[in-house]
């Protein structure tokens, strides 16, 4: 189990880094979008909703290719970002973007459900106590939605950890830069005699994912007890 090569350890560390950064960066956006979808009615809401969920139903390779067109060195946004020193294509930061986009629907879905479950009567009570809309969101709505926010973040993290198609299409499979666990496993299955090494990485992927799910369950239960408990 521990006889991984330095390259494979690098892949594990990179996967954890990419998934963590992707989750942390997308969390504030996820909360904002989920709140808008849960609490606002406006023209084009159905369209926004469909757009958010698009990465879930599109073939990952399509999402990756669209990212390459938009954020590649000569892409519409890529060129502008490169001029301020941010390069995404073929860099680990690009893997972060791909993972964030691919896991965004899961993040938004979980948080939206938990915001919809918050009793709006409590928000009314906050208003009569002098809390404006913004303060009500931060002191009542979001704290009460915390279990769902945690669950969504963990789900997004696990999804980001397993992301393969969009990432490899957008940023390729460069050891030490963009080669995550999934990409390393893929590479090992392509070379003769790589099966044993691939299996070790598979074991690690399973272990990390299981741990994430158990932690999410535990945090979720604790947050639930804090929110509704005695």
């Amino acid at each position: 189990m521990l006889s991984l090569t330095p390259e494979e350890w690098t892949a594990v560390a990179l996967s954890l880094r990419v998934a963590t950064v992707a989750t942390l960066i997308s969390l504030p956006f996820g909360i904002a979008v989920a709140w808008v979808l849960a609490r606002k009615n406006f023209h084009g809401k159905a369209l926004l909703n469909a757009f958010i969920y698009l990465p879930l139903v599109l073939p990952p390779v399509v999402t990756g290719y669209l990212l390459l067109i938009a954020f590649g060195r000569r892409g519409i946004f890529g060129e502008a970002l490169a001029s301020v020193g941010i390069v995404l294509s073929f860099r680990w930061t690009g893997a972060v973007l791909a993972c964030a986009i691919m896991s965004f629907p899961l993040l938004v879905g979980a948080i939206r459900l938990s915001i919809e479950a918050v009793d709006r009567k409590l928000e009314d009570a906050a208003a009569t106590l002098g809390a404006n809309r913004r303060w009500t969101v931060f002191t009542v709505t979001l704290p009460l939605a915390l279990p769902g926010i945690i669950a969504g973040a963990v789900l997004a993290f696990a999804r980001a950890l397993g992301e393969f198609g969009a990432t490899i299409t957008f940023v390729s499979n460069i050891p030490g830069e963009t080669q995550t666990i999934s990409a390393a496993i893929y590479t090992l299955t392509q070379v003769p005699g790589g099966d044993a090494q691939a299996l070790k990485l598979v074991g690690i992927a399973v272990a990390i994912s299981l741990l994430a799910l158990i932690l999410s369950e535990w945090f979720g239960r604790r947050a639930g007890a804090r929110v509704h408990g005695v």
Partner: peptide
């Protein structure tokens, strides 16, 4: 939120995630 009218609801509507002390202090805080 600007009317300064106290409202006691049928069902209390205390904030379940805050202690009684924080509930009592909420209006003053806001």
């Amino acid at each position: 939120y600007r009317r300064r009218i106290g409202y006691v609801f049928q069902d209390g509507r205390l904030f379940p995630h805050l202690s009684v002390a924080r509930n009592l202090d909420y209006g003053r805080w806001m």
